[in-house]
């Protein structure tokens, strides 16, 4: 299965099959974004301890795992929304918290789960706000800003909505607008926290296609948290499987997604077959009866 690893991947992005990637403390020398031995906690509740993650440059990295496994928390740490209690997140070799916020904002964009569209704002205005890190008091709206905003709206297919109010758009359109705003930030790295949540299947695929396009055509590094394992396997070039704050496996989906891994991470018995459309792994949960029988057998054995 290793044969399908993309040839252009650098050495450090080689899948780590050992299952103990979190103990791997090697320092990043090539990748722009990495977490080095971070402990992540909200107040006193520890989500992850001594976690090390490398985001391969030019990859479309997807983080998957069961609910409350720490995937969104990891993304928040990578985007400096959450300060690790121990360890550090490195961006271009520097500790991310020590960098000027606007400088980080020109390198790393984030599409968070919770964002509020101000009352009565138009699409064009909202996308324009993505230019904030490039602006200053004396440089509020350059021709460059105008061009980039137009470009971002065209790429995401919302250019014709520019004059519309954001509150009147559908969920799918609105998500595209927020992505356009993040694009207007012109960051080589873009982090997305569950960008497909609350969208119906057609818009989910739509948003993921857009991400794949941004990754393939513009060479941006994308990091997304996704709920749907099949979407992750289909779109990711690099997959990170998290459970209880630990990396269980990471690598190309076709290398690491196996029935054993899914059972270990999600506790779900399943088959992994080839996706008839793309050839990527497709997770098919075992039938209910097969699963209950297996459970009974397991309890009898013990």
């Amino acid at each position: 299965m290793r044969a399908s690893t993309k040839p252009d991947m650098s050495a450090s992005t080689k899948p780590d099959m050992s299952g103990s990637a979190n103990k791997n403390t090697r320092r990043s020398t090539v990748n722009r974004l990495s977490a080095d031995n971070v402990t992540l906690a909200y107040d006193q509740r520890v989500i992850a301890e001594q976690l090390s993650v490398e985001i391969p440059d030019n990859s479309f990295t997807v983080i998957v795992g069961p609910n409350a496994c720490g995937k969104s928390t990891l993304l928040r740490a990578l985007s400096r929304m959450l300060k690790p209690t121990q360890g550090q997140v490195l961006l271009d070799g520097k500790v991310i918290q020590s960098m000027a916020p606007k400088k980080v904002a020109r390198t790393l964009g984030l599409l968070p789960q919770s964002s509020i569209a101000p009352d009565g704002i138009t699409v064009g205005d909202l996308v324009g706000r993505g230019r904030y890190p490039h602006q200053g008091i004396l440089r509020q709206w350059s021709t460059e800003d105008e061009r980039v905003v137009q470009e971002s709206m065209t790429q995401t297919g919302v250019a014709e909505l520019a004059e519309r109010y954001v509150d009147e758009l559908s969920g799918g359109q609105r998500q595209r607008v927020w992505i356009a705003m993040a694009l207007a930030q012109q960051t080589p790295l873009l982090l997305l926290d569950e960008p497909t949540t609350y969208l119906d299947i057609q818009h989910q695929i739509d948003v993921l296609d857009l991400c794949a396009e941004l990754h393939e055509e513009q060479g941006r590094t994308l990091v997304a948290v996704l709920h749907d394992l099949n979407h992750a396997a289909r779109y990711a070039t690099h997959l990170i499987a998290l459970k209880e704050g630990k990396i269980i496996a990471e690598g190309a989906p076709s290398d690491i997604v196996t029935a054993e891994l899914v059972e270990e991470v999600f506790g779900l018995r399943c088959q992994v077959i080839d996706d008839p459309e793309t050839g990527t792994p497709l997770v098919v949960p075992a039938a209910r009866k097969a699963r209950t029988e297996a459970k009974v057998a397991a309890t009898e054995a013990s």
């Binding site: 985007s79 400096r80 929304m81 000027a100 916020p101 606007k102 400088k103 980080v104 904002a105 020109r106 964009g109 984030l110 599409l111 968070p112 789960q113 919770s114 964002s115 509020i116 569209a117 101000p118 909202l126 706000r129 993505g130 904030y132 890190p133 993040a182 930030q185």
Partner: peptide
């Protein structure tokens, strides 16, 4: 636009 978005914008 919320704390997360504004933080992300620097």
């Amino acid at each position: 636009m919320g704390d997360d978005v504004s933080n992300a914008l620097g």
